[in-house]
Design a protein around this nucleic acid. Structure first.
Length: 425
RNA sequence: GUGGGCGUAGCUCAAUGGCAGAGCACUUGACUGUGGAUCAAGUGGUUGCGGGUUCAACCCCCGUCGCCCACCCCA
């Protein structure tokens, strides 16, 4: 094909096959969210740039956001994430809402970034948040929701793992190492980058930040300590709750998880596919208790996570965990024998539809061979023929496409015959 | 932005300087009222684009565009 206009870079075309997968993911997310009592909601896809300026992080706002000036002169952005919208909407109705709030959402987001595996510029994201509760048990609920999703799609604990840490815990540990508060952000960045850099380069970077040999050693020990969580009351309560929720088989403490977004205040977590080809997080989240106050509301405790559709989509496809999904809603084809019999076919199709069946009528007369081939390609289960012989006798031929049998019966019996074929699927 | 890989039929890919091919898909027929299987024939190409080297370029060289992978960031 020549000169077709290509899609916008980083967007994906959803042909019916891909749309079926996206819908399936949406429905799975709905099922899991609702099983914990969360309500679906949605924010605008357009927000003011100001909304993100406060807390989302330089990279996200300045480099990755799609921003344009509208006709009124306002700076508008295609939302790059949902949490600031959530904070904004809650701040505006704070006294009318029934806390604790459990909300979930699944919608499109845009980030302008270099294309690579597991990333798109237009993607869909599941967001789920619990607001108004400040406790490790609330954090545990969100981790349990994440675990329930992984289980639901067939990613067992051997394949997927949720790694958990706590920023307050890390802050205390950094303090114990004599790292001053103003330096802790950089050190967090250092930790975040550890498994992405060569050990030697990482150490050089650490020295450039001004860490002493003693602090370096302490940091290495901290990051290698799988039992460090025992020193944190918050983390201890979190793991106790996860045990009770039956989610602990998915969860591990990992002091290397710090996360890039600025607004996290306590628990942070990310889920990974253990052995797959994508080394990116499937989902990530944590506690963000200050965000509501930062956008002008009364302080509200909050915890939540987000999952993009791209990484989890790749992993599930690679592992064959996406079920066979029906692409064609109609399993019945009414063929059209000839121009003069077109009305008879249309009438038959309408009759079957009025009885509640999904019915496709071939749109024009054509060779039956072509029409049956079409029925086969569309995965139909039954095909009906109204030819001259049938029409003259007030009959219809009903063919079962699965076993190849067919019968010619009175028109009035067609509905029952088709239903019988569909039942046997 | 930096480094690497790849651009050939609708799709997946061959052809390593000498006639641009195969499989799948599509169309037609074997079957003048019936799909999936089989067989036969057929349609389909500015080899991403522009230049250069050569008797001769899909192939070598230069440039350019696009895609993929890695780095940064993140779902």
């Amino acid at each position: 094909m020549k000169n077709t206009i290509p899609p916008v870079k980083g967007t994906r075309d959803f042909y019916p096959e891909q749309m079926a997968v996206r819908t399936w993911l949406y429905e799975t997310v709905r099922l899991v969210s609702e099983s914990f009592g969360y309500q679906e909601w949605e924010a605008p896809l357009l927000e003011t740039l100001d909304l993100y300026a406060a807390k989302s992080g330089e990279e996200l706002v300045k480099k990755q956001s799609y921003v344009f000036t509208d006709r009124g002169g306002d700076e508008i952005t295609l939302r790059p994430e949902l949490t600031p919208s959530l904070a904004r909407m809650i701040a505006r109705k704070q006294n009318e809402l029934a806390f604790p709030l459990r909300w979930w959402s699944f919608g499109p987001f845009w980030r302008y970034e270099k294309m690579q595996k597991g990333r798109a510029r237009e993607f869909f994201q599941w967001n789920i948040d619990l607001l108004g509760v400040d406790s490790p048990e609330a954090d545990a609920e969100l981790v349990a929701v994440a675990a329930a999703f992984l289980k639901r799609v067939g990613l067992d604990p051997a394949r997927a793992r949720i790694l958990v840490n706590n920023r307050r815990f890390m802050d205390a540990e950094f303090a114990a190492l004599g790292i001053p508060p103003e330096q802790r952000g950089d050190v967090s960045g250092l930790v975040d980058r550890r498994d992405k850099m060569e050990p030697a380069a990482w150490e050089t970077y650490a020295r450039e930040l001004g860490l002493s040999t003693k602090q370096m050693d302490g940091l290495q020990t901290l990051l290698a300590d799988a039992d460090g969580w025992r020193r944190s009351d918050e983390l201890s309560r979190l793991f106790t709750a996860l045990d009770a929720l039956g989610a602990s088989e998915y969860v591990r403490f990992d002091p290397n998880i710090v996360r890039g977004l600025l607004y996290y205040t306590g628990t942070v977590f990310e889920a990974f596919d253990v052995s797959g080809s994508v080394r990116r997080a499937i989902l990530g989240g944590g506690r963000y208790d200050n965000l509501l106050a930062d956008v002008g509301g009364e302080p509200v405790a909050a915890v939540g996570f987000a999952m993009g559709d791209v990484v989890v989509g790749i992993i599930l496809q690679e592992l064959g965990l996406v079920p066979a999904l029906p692409v064609n809603p109609s399993a019945v084809l009414v063929t059209v024998f000839s121009p003069d019999l077109l009305p008879a076919s249309l009438k038959l199709a309408a009759h079957l539809r009025s009885a509640g069946l999904n019915v496709t009528c071939y749109p024009e007369p054509a060779k039956l061979q072509k029409q049956f081939k079409f029925a086969d390609r569309m995965g139909m289960k039954a095909a009906l023929v109204v030819g001259p012989d049938e029409a003259a006798a007030g009959k219809v031929t009903v063919k079962n496409l699965k076993d190849g049998t067919q019968e010619t019966i009175a028109s009035g019996q067609a509905l029952e015959a088709v239903k019988k074929i569909l039942e046997r699927h």
